[in-house]
Nucleic acid binder design. Structure first.
Lengths: 107, 107
DNA sequence: ACGATAAGCAACTATTTGGTTGCATGATAT
DNA sequence: ATATCATGCAACCAAATAGTTGCTTATCGT
């Protein structure tokens, strides 16, 4: 697997904020996601494109609206992998965490 | 806490590679970390400085050598927080993981 | 003392990135 | 049909980034 797009997508505070907003309320349109942000719609659209490329956000068209949905799987995978790599020796809880992740519906 | 330096530091593949190398063998010098990399020593030093700023790497002087050590704590914290935020509803193992992190020697 | 080795510092460059403005497309409602 | 609203696309710009080269400082071994 190629981690890089996910790490890259998570590196920007604006993009993490967008994930926060989607986490708060899933299925928002581009316009909704722009509200209250000090950014143009086009800037937000670019951030969303990066999040989409990292498979962190997916979308569905509804008429002329584009509804955005968060996908927590890549975050979970990276977290599990990196905890595993750097913390595993001292974390007994990890195996349970791993099992939970692997037993889920994301391959 | 300010996540941003950690996310930013992890965003670069070269820096993740440096963490991999330190994970493989801890306490390496700058020169050792450079070996086999398609990068100048100065470039590696800059990456290490960014990792240090994110508290992901610390170092100790040994004569004229600078020994680098990995610090897994920030990775664990971020992983725990982000799993918590985006995956917690489906992860029972997280609370144990959190406890383990909080009970450790890192303040 | 002196050459060799390890690292530090600073200036410079090319590329990437986050953001913009302007215009085009497509769906909705009257 | 046509005005309006939501989004798409492309060019452009300024700032940040990854990398370089060149030079300096400090320690080790002889």
């Amino acid at each position: 697997m190629d981690d890089d797009p996910v790490f890259h997508a998570l590196a920007d505070a604006s993009r993490r904020q967008l994930l926060d907003r989607l986490h708060d309320r899933n299925g928002q349109t581009l316009g909704e996601l722009c509200q209250g942000l000090e950014m143009t719609r086009q800037a937000v659209a670019k951030h969303l494109a990066i999040l989409e490329a990292a498979n962190l956000v997916s979308w569905r068209r509804h008429g002329r609206e584009k509804l955005h949905f968060i996908n927590p799987v890549p975050i979970g995978e990276i977290a599990a992998r990196w905890i595993g790599k750097f913390d595993q020796p001292r974390l007994g809880a990890l195996s349970a965490l791993r099992k939970t992740l692997e037993g889920d519906d994301h391959g």
